[in-house]
């Protein structure tokens, strides 16, 4: 960075004004969600609104984080389901993805197949949903975590392959050749040489996969019907559509459901952004 030219005053003002506006646009909905979760029901039904709560109300969080009552159970079960499903699907996607990425990168697998893989996740899920529904129903795995884990794996694999392929492509191939000459087989080479080198990319892929699976709604809505498999997005949709009239409860569910992805996104920001952007900017 060597642009040492000083900005004219009016441009400086414009810059900071735009930044303030941007910050407001980005932050306002999030802050409001947080405020709603902590405001008392009376504050939330004033016209016009009581923006800053007259008193802080943590009761919904206590309610939701308690296994003993109905809402808490529904919420915590859904969180747990989401955690199990997203983690398992991400793990499957990583393993299958790394192997396939290696085939595309180093074993001349056809790029047309790669494109077919990518095309599967670009198709709308409505083109798969009905046959999957019948198949799962015949197998008796409707409303189980397994069915969602399988579906999410299929959703994450192409994307994992693509991310890892772009990262393996840029490794010097001679290093793998050296390992093979030294007597290592493909899997050994992958495990001991390739994977340690692309560890950051694997991390990014794992995070992005987890976030994508955590976010999924359509399959979960259709394949799950009760606490045994319902994921957090479906639970939120239920909360917001159902008997709950207190906005604060809905907001608290939203806040809690956002905690894992937001933490991941903020902590691993550099990782994730490079993973996300890598595919489109660098190729």
């Amino acid at each position: 960075m060597h642009s040492t030219i000083k900005r004219p005053r009016h441009l400086s003002c414009l810059l900071y004004a735009s930044l303030t506006l941007l910050a407001f646009f980005v932050l306002a909905p999030v802050l409001w969600l947080l405020l709603m979760s902590l405001s008392s029901p009376t504050d939330l039904t004033k016209v016009p609104l009581q923006w800053i709560p007259s008193q802080w109300d943590f009761s919904r969080y206590a309610l939701l984080l308690d296994w003993q009552n109905g809402s808490g159970k529904r919420f915590l079960a859904a969180m747990l389901n989401s955690l199990i499903i997203a983690t398992s699907a991400s793990f499957i996607a990583l393993v299958a993805g790394v192997l396939a990425a290696y085939a595309f990168s180093r074993r001349n697998a056809s790029m047309l197949l790669m494109f077919a893989f990518l095309a599967t996740i670009m198709m709308p899920p409505i083109t798969y949903i009905l046959p999957l529904y019948s198949a799962f129903s015949e197998l008796g795995i409707l409303n189980t975590k397994v069915s969602l884990i399988i579906c999410y794996s299929a959703m994450l694999i192409p994307f994992a392959i693509w991310l890892m392929k772009t990262n393996i492509d840029v490794l010097p191939e001679e290093i793998e050749h050296a390992a093979m000459i030294e007597g290592a087989g493909t899997i050994y080479t992958l495990r001991k040489v390739v994977l340690p080198i692309i560890l950051p990319a694997i991390g990014a892929t794992a995070m992005l996969s987890f976030l994508t699976a955590w976010d999924e709604f359509f399959y979960a809505l259709i394949f799950s019907s009760d606490l045994s498999a319902k994921t957090i997005p479906v639970a939120i949709a239920d909360f917001s559509a159902g008997r709950v009239t207190d906005f604060g409860v809905i907001a608290s569910v939203g806040v809690l459901a956002s905690v894992p992805p937001v933490l991941i996104a903020l902590f691993f920001q550099r990782f994730i952004v490079s993973g996300l952007v890598g595919g489109s900017v660098k190729g």
């Binding site: 010097p172 001679e174 290093i175 050749h177 050296a178 390992a179 000459i181 030294e182 001991k192 040489v193």
Partner: peptide, 10 residues
């Protein structure tokens, strides 16, 4: 055994 141009060290 092979010694590579880029050394290809792990």
């Amino acid at each position: 055994a092979m010694v590579f141009q880029s050394y290809a060290l792990f």
